[in-house]
Nucleic acid binder design. Structure first.
Length: 905
DNA sequence: GATCCGACACGAG
DNA sequence: CTCGTGTCGGATC
């Protein structure tokens, strides 16, 4: 069951006469319980409640039918029932058939409604169906329902007209859908006479819709012809006004309707389309044309607050300031008006147009404010009939046809709604019909297209603002076509880009568009563009020849009203070709003026850190741990290992401790098989091990990767071994992924009997002072700035975090002092045995003595940099980046002569 | 729903 | 060849 089906089922219950004995079971069925489950519920076998008239379904809901007027008592009764604690229903609900009260147990939110309105609140009940709450559904009932009904109509039409499934016909079908939506909207808001469209279609199409095809075709044809030119159309079609405006410009085939499709069309017409939100609705009906995404129901739409994170600092805030400053000056206000009329907004990944819709709406709102102010200033003398904000100033590129069509429609609807408000305010408004020119939405691949062909460069008194939320696609999930697009765009420009996110292409293209002319752009992106290796590759290419980052939102968790938010950390980056204007960094609720915003989205010079496979300071090399590539077969839990060793004590030498990030941070214990290349037969002697080796060989031989298939021949060895794989005496382990909440990185020192997994970086047989550096605040600061991230957590990498970590030249004495400091930290940790690193470094619960020894370590180390401890993290980073930049400069100078020699030789 | 890291293919050097 | 990184995530409490 998806949300719309649940809504429909609840509507049916609400429409039927109330039957108290039946209601809980009907509700269970509406929530998607299969008939068999409902029967068991009815017979009492799985009804956990002992209260008469109440039904409790484990983890789903607890519903009670009460005496008339006793709804709230009923609810508090089941709330306090012990069974509620044991069986954890998601929803509590009590009703007497007139009123209904319900409660969402986890959040405590409650609902008090008339029983007959049950279906209007279906979003609230979704947890009873095992779904999480879907706020979009609660707030935008009409949008969800509309999307659901359109999906059914779409499916029914495709079923009846299989030949329409071809890509060419799909466009026609998509256009048909948007025209139908327009008509349904128009007849509900008064663009058409009340119910004009549905009345005429349902009168003339026959009871079963046998004539729907020709009726709709006639209606559309009429709307595309001025009255008086409709001789060839049936007389009834003359009632339609002339609409035109792109939407109806082309003639269009209409598919055949069968009874089902016809009924779904009727259902859709019955909705009150006046209430739909063009921004959200657009995203929702995108899923209509893509059955795979039906269950998502617009999950990835950008919420209005997130859109405003882009549009606000891009130009709306500036406009507001200008309006504010203009004050009582007629001339200044008129100038603002002029500027608003010259603003063009371009979304190169516009989807169903929600950025454009919001931008349009916001511009209209500001225009209204200015007009209002002007009317006050001159007593209405300058009142104007029409808005100067034209849809033609809104440009979009969208790759999927249905979304592109929807975007055009959404803009029309937004325009209509804005005009209606304009009319309310000023008493006059543009006639809704015929539609004027629409937005310039192009259905094409933005990465292949010359953007200037879509949105011509701004002329005199014009500004273009690029805004949008392009797709984030990591290299693992890219389609071949997307990879091709990246190569097409980037092959000649970037040294390595294959592993970067697709989203960077939009930044490159946006920078190209605005470079050398007045312009600005801002895009939502995954935070990976401001972290890790991407920074040094992407930003030097974007931030050249006058482009700067003029505002940025530091990473925030993606969220919209959808039930299951995409779990991704996002940033917004605004780039501009203008040197003037304050740079601003937004961090959560904070807003901070910046001198310069660099690729890490920090207020710092444009230094970006490049990966280095070897240390560029006097530090030992750090490696990534070894990778088993074994489908788990070379790895043993503690129990498995103990069992093996008790059965085959001679196998013990082949078993070693195996440590990943969890083992380091949380003290888990795992083991792995570890043998030398020539020991395959020695390992095979043990039947349990032989079995595992076979599994490894099988798994590897079926791999897509050549290197892994090759490794099938040595199943007793890890698929990728770093160096010798094991230390002589000791090793420092640094988890590759770790929580960023800890005040220090969870580094650990281990003995020789350990194999590090790829979830750890490892320094083999290190001096102790390395530990002191890795455990320092300075290292933490550096890592928090330059490391890659997973969500918001650190991805430690040797190439960015260690090999390039700036240190001063230490004296022998200083190294000795750091050695001692490292041992002091370790000793303090041991005193808290058996507490794990995760427990010891819990930011809320770090022991005082450990805190103190770390403070001393920091003081010792930092004094070696500048003769005293640093005052704050800003000072730490400044110093580190200065040292880094100087070192890179020096290396370049050393490199240059070498290259000369090479090229001469 | 907050928190915290696993495993591997695949590209880069 | 050897080595390192990313993941509009996922498991787990």
């Amino acid at each position: 069951m998806n949300p719309t089906e649940i809504a429909d089922a609840l509507e049916e219950i609400a429409a039927r006469p109330f039957d108290g004995g039946e209601f809980p079971f009907a509700f269970a069925a509406a929530m998607g319980s299969p008939q068999a489950t409902v029967s068991k519920l009815r017979s009492g076998t799985i009804n956990k409640s002992k209260v008469p008239g109440a039904v409790l379904m484990n983890r789903k809901f607890y519903a009670m039918v009460t005496e008339p007027g006793a709804v709230d008592q009923g609810l508090s009764m089941i709330r306090s029932d012990k069974k509620t604690t044991t069986h954890k229903p998601a929803i509590l609900l009590a009703t007497d058939g007139v009123d209904l009260s319900a409660e969402h147990v986890a959040s405590g939110d409650s609902l008090h409604i008339k029983f007959a309105d049950l279906h209007h609140h279906f979003g609230f009940f979704l947890p009873a169906a095992g779904m999480s709450r879907y706020k979009a559904a609660e707030e935008n009932e009409v949008d969800v329902k509309a999307a659901g009904r359109l999906a059914k109509l779409y499916d029914a039409l495709l079923k009846k007209n299989p030949d329409w499934k071809t890509p060419e016909r799909r466009h026609d079908l998509n256009q048909l859908m948007t025209r139908l939506i327009f008509c349904m909207f128009a007849e509900d808001v008064g663009i058409f006479d009340n119910n004009l469209f549905s009345r005429l279609i349902f009168t003339h199409a026959g009871d079963k819709g046998e004539e729907a095809q020709s009726c709709i075709a006639s209606a559309f044809a009429a709307m595309n012809l001025p009255k008086g030119q409709r001789q060839n159309l049936p007389a009834w079609a003359d009632a339609f006004p002339y609409v035109n405006g792109g939407l109806f410009a082309d003639t269009l085939d209409v598919p055949k309707f069968d009874r089902g499709a016809y009924r779904y069309l009727q259902d859709a017409c019955q909705l009150d389309w006046q209430e739909i939100n063009p921004d959200i609705f657009g995203s929702m009906i995108q899923s209509v044309a893509d059955p795979d995404k039906r269950s998502e129901l617009g999950m990835h739409y950008t919420s209005v607050p997130n859109i405003l994170k882009v549009l606000g600092p891009l130009f709306l805030d500036d406009l507001d300031e200008q309006i504010e400053k203009a004050g009582d000056s007629r001339k200044a206000q008129a100038r603002v008006l002029k500027r608003i009329e010259g603003i063009r907004v371009f979304d190169p990944a516009c989807g169903s147009g929600n950025f454009l819709v919001v931008a349009y709406r916001e511009l209209r709102a500001r225009e209204m404010r200015v007009l209002e102010r002007l009317a006050q200033l001159d007593g209405g003398a300058s009142a104007q009939m029409f808005s100067g904000v034209r849809l033609a100033n809104f440009y979009g590129i969208e790759i999927t046809d249905f979304a592109a069509e929807t975007a055009k429609l959404a803009l029309f609807i937004a325009e209509y709604q804005a005009n209606a408000r304009f009319g309310e305010m000023f008493g006059n408004t543009a006639p809704a019909l015929p539609l004027r020119d629409g937005g310039n939405i192009v259905c094409d691949n933005a990465l292949r297209l010359d953007w200037e062909g879509v949105c011509p460069p701004p002329g005199e008194n014009e500004e273009v603002f690029i805004a949008g939320n392009p797709p984030f696609v990591g290299f693992n999930s890219r389609t071949p076509a997307q990879s091709e697009d990246m190569r097409f765009l980037l092959a000649d420009r970037l040294k390595s880009f294959e592993r970067l996110d697709l989203v960077i292409c939009w930044f490159i293209k946006a920078a190209d568009y605005i470079r050398g002319r007045a312009g600005a752009g801002a895009l939502v992106s995954t935070n990976s563009i401001a972290q890790g290796v991407t920074v040094n590759i992407l930003w030097p290419e974007v931030l050249r020849e006058g482009i700067r980052i003029h505002f940025a939102h530091r990473p925030f968790m993606w969220s919209n009203n959808a039930a299951k938010n995409a779990a991704v950390s996002c940033v917004v980056v605004g780039i501009s070709s203008s040197r003037t204007g304050q740079s601003i960094i937004f961090d959560g609720e904070l807003r901070k003026d910046a001198n310069n915003i660099n690729g890490y989205l920090l207020d710092a010079p444009d230094v970006t850190v490049a990966q280095k496979g070897r240390p560029i300071f006097p530090l030992p090399k750090m490696d990534v741990g070894s990778i088993a590539r074994d489908e788990g077969n070379l790895i043993f839990s503690e129990t498995e290992r103990n069992q093996l060793v008790s059965e085959h004590p001679e196998a013990a030498p082949f078993i070693r401790r195996y440590m990943g990030a969890r083992e380091v941070a949380q003290g888990l214990v795992r083991y792995c098989l570890w043998a030398e290349t020539n020991e395959l037969d020695d390992v095979r002697r043990f039947p349990p091990l032989a079995k595992r080796l076979d599994a490894v060989a099988k798994f590897r031989s079926e791999s897509d990767a050549q290197v892994t298939r090759d490794a099938a021949a040595v199943p007793h060895r890890f698929g990728q071994i770093t160096g010798k794989g094991v230390p002589k005496k000791s090793a420092i382990l640094m988890p590759r992924t770790s929580s960023s909440r800890r005040p220090y990185l969870p580094v650990e020192l281990v003995g020789s009997d350990v194999v590090a997994s790829a979830d750890c970086q490892i320094i083999f047989d290190p001096p102790d002072w390395c530990f002191a550096i890795l455990a320092s605040k300075l290292q933490w600061c550096w890592v928090s700035t330059v490391s890659g991230r997973m969500k918001n957590d650190f991805r430690y990498s040797s190439t960015l975090c260690w090999h390039v970590f700036p240190i001063p030249r230490f004296t022998e004495d200083q190294l000795e002092a750091l050695n001692a400091s490292a041992r002091a930290i370790l000793k303090t940790r041991y005193m808290h045995h058996p507490k794990t690193i995760a427990q010891l470094y819990d930011p809320d619960d770090m022991p005082d003595d450990l805190r103190e020894v770390h403070r001393q370590n920091d003081e010792l180390l930092e004094t070696m940099y500048i003769g005293r401890p640093f005052r704050n993290d800003t000072e730490r980073l400044e110093r580190l980046f200065k040292l880094y930049a100087a070192r890179i400069e020096k290396l370049k100078k050393e490199e240059a002569p070498k290259r000369m020699v090479k090229s001469n030789g």
